[in-house]
Write a protein that binds this DNA or RNA. Structure first.
Lengths: 226, 226
DNA sequence: GTCTATACGGCGATAGAC
DNA sequence: GTCTATCGCCGTATAGAC
């Protein structure tokens, strides 16, 4: 079942706005075009990708694209909202399962790295064109910030819970820590390629080790309280 | 003295290509234009920034820009090469000072974060437009990869030395570890703003703690050998 | 060193035939 | 659902006056 799980409401407008045809064949074509466009956006950047290039890739002319989408922005909107809906749904599910803060955070790290392969293009676009899309006139891409805020709340909750339980060191800033974790995960799309020495699972476990236990061997230093 | 220290040769072509006028007044104007352009590139992206906008910002017309630069690419070239020359020179200097791997790595982390403020715009451009610039026809921006490779060698050397000395855990991958450190530092330009709770020094110390000792309190887990 | 004026191409998007 | 044809705009860059 490739459609949304019922773990919560859609967080992005485009996802709920999108019509759900019965046969599915009409939207398969559309989805295919979105995938092609996403690859180009990721490789060249949103603005540097022209509607003619997208159409070329699909073997049609640029004018024909406008039978499926009313603008280039609509396409990138769909790329990003599809990814964010999936991501947020999986985070919510992980929180429902529960566990110690360390267990939940580990799972959230795994979820993040596991999206690297299926959503590589979308994550790349999100990283490179986030600021530009937010700077566009109108509120069209405001949902990007909304999604980011919900995700941040979920992470912060766990980090703070871990500190309150004495599981995490009290002398680190939760927000700062969250940002560094988040960035480390997403920025990996820049260099991660499937088929390398490590798959995304190995990547996640490597990072979980570093995150919780650090690079150093031996005794810890500067373990002073808050 | 704002010019290059004699800690090594320039690593970027643009830097050595650039004429060094005696009076300095002529190049001050040029440097000013580069700074204005860098801010716009950082805010809107290289491609989305037009030469007309750059000229507007400087209070001249777009045609007049071409008295100073022969193309828009030349401007971004100068933005990036100035930053990279400074960065590489400082890394080289840190390696010359020496110390234990942990000390040297800590210093390299500090150097990285300390560039966030003076080179904020350049780092942002580097992050967002790296792929696009490398994809341009010709070898013009190939020096970006050259610089990146030299920097990677410097980091890997220290990580591996630390593992050989038993200072760092042997069960992490040096290259992977380097990439994650590098990404965590640079990606901070996305959210770091001077005047917040933490300055770049505090940021660096926070990260050094996390990097070496991790988030967890208490005993370490999974300390198996290679 | 800046301005005026403009060349030239490619951009996103549209209308209507098929 | 795609093509043909095209509109109007804006992009980088240039030439020559001042």
């Amino acid at each position: 079942m490739p459609t949304r799980k019922n773990a919560g409401p859609a967080v992005t407008p485009a996802a709920s706005r999108r019509p759900r045809p019965s046969g599915g064949s009409a939207s398969e074509r559309r989805d295919h075009l979105v995938k092609l466009a996403a690859e180009l956006f990721a490789r060249k950047g949103f603005q540097a990708t022209t509607v003619r290039q997208i159409a070329d890739e699909a073997g049609i002319l640029s004018g024909s694209l406008y039978h499926h989408f009313d603008s280039k922005e609509t396409i990138v909107d769909e790329v990003l909202s599809t990814f964010l809906d999936d991501l947020v749904a999986r985070y919510r599910a992980a929180l429902e399962v529960g566990g110690t803060p360390r267990e939940v955070l580990s799972e959230m790290v795994r979820i993040g790295f596991s999206t690297l392969e299926p959503h590589r293009a979308a994550i790349t676009v999100m990283q490179n064109d986030w600021n530009y899309l937010l700077s566009l006139p109108g509120d069209r891409f405001a949902y990007l910030m909304k999604a980011e805020e919900e995700v941040e709340r979920m992470w912060l909750e766990q980090i703070k819970a871990g500190q309150a339980a004495g599981e995490f060191r009290p002398d680190v800033d939760p927000k700062l820590t969250y940002r560094m974790i988040r960035d480390t995960i997403w920025v990996a799309v820049r260099w991660f390629r499937p088929g390398g020495r490590l798959n995304t699972t190995g990547l996640a476990e490597h990072y979980i080790t570093m995150l919780f236990d650090g690079l150093a061997t031996g005794e810890r230093t500067s373990q002073q309280g808050s």
